[in-house]
Simulated scan of single mutants.
Amino acid sequence: MRVDIEDLAVEVAGRRLLHDVTLRAADGQLIGLVGPNGSGKSTLLRCVYRALRPAGGTVRLDGADLHAMDAREGARLLAALPQEAQATFDFTVAEIVAMGRLPHQRGSGRASAADAEICARALARVGAGHLAHRGFPGLSGGEKQRVLIARALAQEPRVLVLDEPTNHLDIAQQLEVLALVRDSRLTVLAALHDLNLAARHCDALYVLDGGRIVAAGEPHEVLTAGLLADVFGVRAHRVRHPETGAVQLLFDRLAEGAGRRDGADADGPAPPGPVTPPDDAPSLPTPR
């Protein structure tokens, strides 16, 4: 399913947090949102999964306005894993995953045998079938994230929104979670802190700074030394992964007085080079 975000703007308490953000994701692409803390990544995703209503602009799924849909219709198309999803639930794993079926249930809302089979398949898909009867609070961080991804898969959406899905996970768990997301073949929007993970797994990156898109494209095009110095305030050395060829980054501190603009925030001046993808731009490749 194609996702088109057009001129999205968000204001909270009179402060502009997003400035006319435009983003496009082709069917099946994994799109990464990267940027420093406070750059607007989570705000943008909250608009996409309708936890926040924008002051302007639209979010469209295959051309249909997401915010004009009723809650059930929207939940059948889009599932989200927000940061706050890591809160403790006093449920079993099977009960957590079964919540993903609610948008598809009518009347009494009782789960059917078909629902139970879909949930079991989702758990098996993320390698967590053996956890079905475990209590969710007693799981490790990586196990919890697998279960929450299974819940999203059980929802049978066509778009998946992930806000920092690898937070608090060790490196092996981070790689496993992003591999699961990649293998889902859904259209995915994911906010990521780790630029090397983003470069390895994403088809395209959108860089946010001060509530604006300042760069967009394939990872090797976007993650330049100049951009990383200006936006993240670090000196970066680009290398190629010896097996995959993906861009990998080594970081140093910048020399004193160089790099990131002082005082940049969501209400400050626009950073150089805002990016709005043209309407006739070709879809980025989707390697699988």
Rank of each mutant, 00 (worst) to 15 (best):
Ala199Thr: 06
Ala199Gly: 15
Ala199Tyr: 00
Ala199Asn: 14
Arg200Cys: 06
Arg200Trp: 08
Arg200Gly: 05
His201Ser: 14
His201Trp: 15
His201Leu: 14
Cys202Gln: 09
Cys202His: 09
Cys202Gly: 10
Asp203Trp: 09
Asp203His: 15
Asp203Ala: 10
Leu205Thr: 07
Tyr206Lys: 04
Tyr206Asn: 03
Val207Asp: 03
Asp209Ile: 00
Asp209Asn: 13
Asp209Lys: 01
Gly210Lys: 06
Gly210Gln: 11
Gly211Lys: 11
Arg212Trp: 09
Arg212Leu: 08
Ile213Asn: 12
Ile213Pro: 01
Val214Asp: 05
Ala215Pro: 07
Ala215His: 02
Ala215Met: 09
Ala216Phe: 02
Ala216Cys: 12
Ala216Met: 08
Gly217Pro: 10
Gly217Cys: 10
Glu218Val: 14
Glu218His: 13
Glu218Ser: 13
Glu218Arg: 15
Glu218Ile: 11
Pro219Lys: 06
His220Asn: 11
His220Val: 12
His220Tyr: 04
Glu221Thr: 08
Glu221Ser: 12
Glu221Asn: 09
Val222Pro: 01
Val222His: 01
Leu223Ile: 10
Leu223Val: 11
Thr224Ser: 15
Thr224Phe: 05
Thr224Lys: 09
Thr224Pro: 11
Ala225Lys: 14
Ala225Glu: 15
Ala225Gly: 15
Gly226Asn: 14
Leu227Phe: 09
Leu227Tyr: 07
Leu228Thr: 03
Leu228Trp: 03
Leu228Phe: 05
Ala229Ser: 15
Ala229Trp: 02
Asp230Cys: 00
Val231Arg: 01
Val231Asn: 01
Phe232Asn: 03
Phe232Arg: 01
Phe232Gly: 02
Gly233Asn: 08
Gly233Trp: 02
Gly233Asp: 10
Gly233Cys: 10
Val234Asp: 06
Arg235Glu: 15
Arg235Trp: 03
Ala236Pro: 04
Ala236Met: 12
Ala236Cys: 09
Ala236Arg: 03
Ala236Leu: 06
His237Lys: 04
His237Leu: 13
His237Phe: 12
Arg238Met: 03
Arg238His: 04
Val239Asn: 00
Val239Leu: 13
Val239Trp: 02
Arg240Glu: 14
Arg240Asn: 04
Arg240Thr: 08
His241Phe: 04
His241Cys: 05
His241Tyr: 04
His241Asp: 15
Pro242Thr: 07
Pro242Val: 07
Pro242Asn: 08
Pro242Lys: 07
Glu243Cys: 01
Glu243Leu: 14
Glu243Ile: 13
Thr244Gly: 09
Thr244Glu: 11
Thr244Phe: 06
Thr244Tyr: 07
Gly245Lys: 02
Ala246Asn: 07
Ala246Pro: 02
Val247Met: 01
Gln248Met: 04
Gln248Gly: 05
Gln248Trp: 00
Leu249Asp: 00
Leu249Ser: 00
